[in-house]
């Protein structure tokens, strides 16, 4: 009897578990598939009195984003701004992380917190001054402005993630190299950077996710296809009297989505550590 009840309990456990996991999985995945289907359907089918679930497929939207809309410019702007910002971040963050992780000095913790605190700053707080700053620099509506601002938005994150991986490296390796007469910069370059490579890659991917998402600064700093990125260009797919062009929006969303999925698959194991800036050692 007790045996039977335990088996029944076990079954309920499994049932509840997979019910929860399954429904959450469907909730996450179904909208994605539905939205993909939107991208492959004619416009008349998308907004109709009764939703149409069984689609007729067409590549209308695909052709339109490349011919009518300057999709190539949007894509190029996004790629350049994100890649450039990550280069700036790594150049600034790797030495900073090394300094925070491997040295002891006055104000070290305060400097670390200062860097972290910039992550807590809402874009809206500095939006107006940033707008005037870039206006005075003559950088409005350029990819350079976006590069600089994305770099600033992500710098705290990148520094803290890399710092967390550098903390794990044992001091013995470093001491041995120093005995052999290596300078600090040499140690950083040939020992610390190679060992913390997973952290650097993780930081890069997470910075890319936040950069491609960035909306407010991009909205303010760009005004034409010179600097529109995918994220803000979407808001312009409204075609005046035609209303919102959802199938084009959906396709553009997927063009940005696919590379993100591939990148995240690469760093999946490091994701929780990266997103908490090193607080989880998963």
């Amino acid at each position: 009897m007790a045996m039977k009840r335990r088996r029944l309990g076990r079954f309920t456990n499994y049932f509840v578990r997979y019910l929860v996991l399954g429904s959450w999985g469907v909730f996450c995945a179904a909208p994605v598939l539905w939205f993909l289907s939107i991208g492959l359907r004619p416009r008349v089918e998308i907004i109709s009195p009764q939703p149409i679930y069984w689609p007729t497929f067409t590549l209308d939207a695909w052709n339109m984003i490349w011919s009518v809309w300057p999709m190539a410019s949007y894509l190029r702007n996004s790629l350049l701004a994100i890649a450039g910002s990550i280069v700036i971040d790594l150049v600034l963050a790797i030495p900073a992380a090394y300094s925070l992780a491997r040295y002891k000095y006055r104000f070290r913790d305060d400097i670390g917190f200062y860097i972290l605190s910039t992550r807590m700053m809402a874009p809206a707080i500095v939006a107006i001054p940033i707008f005037f700053l870039f206006k005075n620099l003559g950088l409005l509506d350029t990819v350079w402005a976006l590069m600089l601002i994305y770099a600033a938005v992500n710098l705290s994150l990148v520094t803290w993630i890399i710092r967390s991986y550098m903390l794990d490296i044992s001091y013995e390796i470093e001491d041995a190299a120093r005995m052999d007469g290596a300078t600090d910069l040499r140690i950083l370059w040939s020992i610390i950077i190679p060992i913390s490579a997973p952290g650097i890659v993780t930081a890069t991917v997470i910075a890319a996710i936040f950069a491609i998402n960035e909306f407010l600064f991009t909205l303010l700093l760009s005004s034409t296809k010179n600097a529109y990125t995918l994220s803000v260009a979407l808001a312009n797919f409204t075609g005046g009297s035609d209303g919102v062009i959802y199938n084009a929006i959906a396709l553009v969303a997927f063009i940005a989505f696919v590379p993100m999925v591939l990148l995240v698959l690469v760093i999946q194991r490091h994701l929780s550590r990266g997103l908490t800036m090193g607080a989880v050692k998963g």
């Binding site: 995945a29 998402n213 995918l230 929006i249 969303a253 989505f257 993100m260 995240v264």
Partner: peptide, 10 residues
């Protein structure tokens, strides 16, 4: 993780 990898605007 899929939802997180979409752009917020999308």
């Amino acid at each position: 993780l899929l939802p997180m990898l979409f752009m917020t605007s999308a």
